[in-house]
């Protein structure tokens, strides 16, 4: 039983080896290397020589916090994943580093997630989760001004979105690898994690509420480490949009793409596992269906963001009216 408490993370988020094609694994490593390199450089500026002990202990904190679970119903329990919380408390760069080491140790020490695909797992759970989570958080806080509900609502929204978007990234990778058609993987992953995300959101909210009372300076620490709130919101939005745009391309055996690959001489690579190479010009073979999916994804993203913004401003107006 204790064993399971140390393996609390939803299995679906930690991709094991073998489930991604070498090409997708490689792309994952490239994104991870760029993201972590950037984070190392930027967080060093922000934290100086305290960086290493602080992030090391807080990475252990994320790990240990994942053990704190609560009963949902019928023997299932929810618990924290932590990307958004790390990004909010430490700032996005230190958050990325912290989550990266968590993902790495989970893979090496507990075989939770593969080694060759670790780049992809870092991309999903550290980079995407932290950037999107932080972007949403800063967006809500900008709307809320200095009011406390901004912290709580921002924390909840950030945690929920980070989990769902990381799951979408995971589905996209599985799709590109030909392991699971995106048409099934995406709704399944997004759906399951939309539920998991609620637990994540509530725990993050609870943690932030407590910390903001006991040590308000620490909640603002992450903000101070990364100025330019609006820019972060744009970054978060861009990552979410990029994933949405990629998802319809990630279907196995997309006829149009395969023809393109053939013309480009990639057919050898595409023969066994369909490493679908993303062509960097217009997609001649893209069916209307794919276009429709892209459009739907974009519209969906905008609706979710719009809803959050709308609710926040509505709430603000009512608060103002009450005052």
């Amino acid at each position: 039983m204790l064993f399971s408490t140390l393996h609390p993370a939803p299995i679906l988020m930690h991709i094991p080896d073998g489930f991604l094609s070498p090409m997708v694994a490689l792309v994952g490593w490239v994104i991870a290397a760029v993201g972590v390199g950037l984070a190392l450089w930027r967080s060093r500026e922000a934290l100086g020589e305290r960086q290493i002990p602080l992030m090391g202990v807080l990475a252990a904190f994320i790990f240990a916090a994942q053990m704190l679970n609560f009963t949902v119903a019928g023997g299932t329990s929810g618990h924290l994943i932590g990307g958004a919380l790390a990004a909010i408390l430490l700032g996005p760069w230190a958050g990325i580093l912290t989550m990266t080491t968590v993902v790495a140790v989970q893979a090496i020490l507990f075989q939770d997630g593969g080694l060759l695909v670790m780049g992809a797992n870092i991309t999903n759970m550290a980079i995407v989760a932290c950037l999107v989570g932080y972007g949403v958080y800063r967006g809500v806080r900008l709307l809320a001004g200095e009011r406390r509900w901004g912290l709580l609502a921002g924390g909840f929204a950030a945690a929920w979105t980070s989990v769902v978007v990381a799951a979408v990234a995971c589905a996209v990778e599985l799709g590109f690898s030909g392991t699971s058609p995106i048409g099934i993987a995406l709704p399944a992953m997004a759906g399951v994690h939309a539920l998991i995300g609620i637990g994540e959101g509530l725990i993050t909210l609870g943690a932030l509420a407590l910390i903001s009372v006991a040590r308000p300076d620490l909640v603002e620490m992450g903000r101070a480490k990364a100025a330019g709130g609006f820019r972060w919101t744009l970054v978060g939005l861009a990552v979410a949009l990029a994933l949405t745009l990629l998802s319809p391309l990630a279907s196995p055996y997309p006829d149009g793409l395969e023809r393109v690959a053939e013309n480009l001489g990639f057919i050898e690579a595409a023969q066994e596992a369909p490493y679908t190479v993303i062509p960097d010009y217009t997609f001649p073979g893209l069916s209307n269906e794919a276009l429709a999916t892209i459009a739907a994804g974009v519209v969906g993203t905008i609706i979710v963001f719009g809803l959050a913004v709308g609710l926040a401003s509505l709430y603000r107006r009512r608060r103002a009216a009450e005052a």
Binding site: G78, A207, L210
Partner: peptide, 16 residues
């Protein structure tokens, strides 16, 4: 879930 969040908050403060 919120109580669990408070526990995570306490753990964070101790870790910090």
């Amino acid at each position: 879930a919120r109580v669990t969040g408070s526990m995570a908050g306490i753990l964070f403060l101790r870790s910090y």
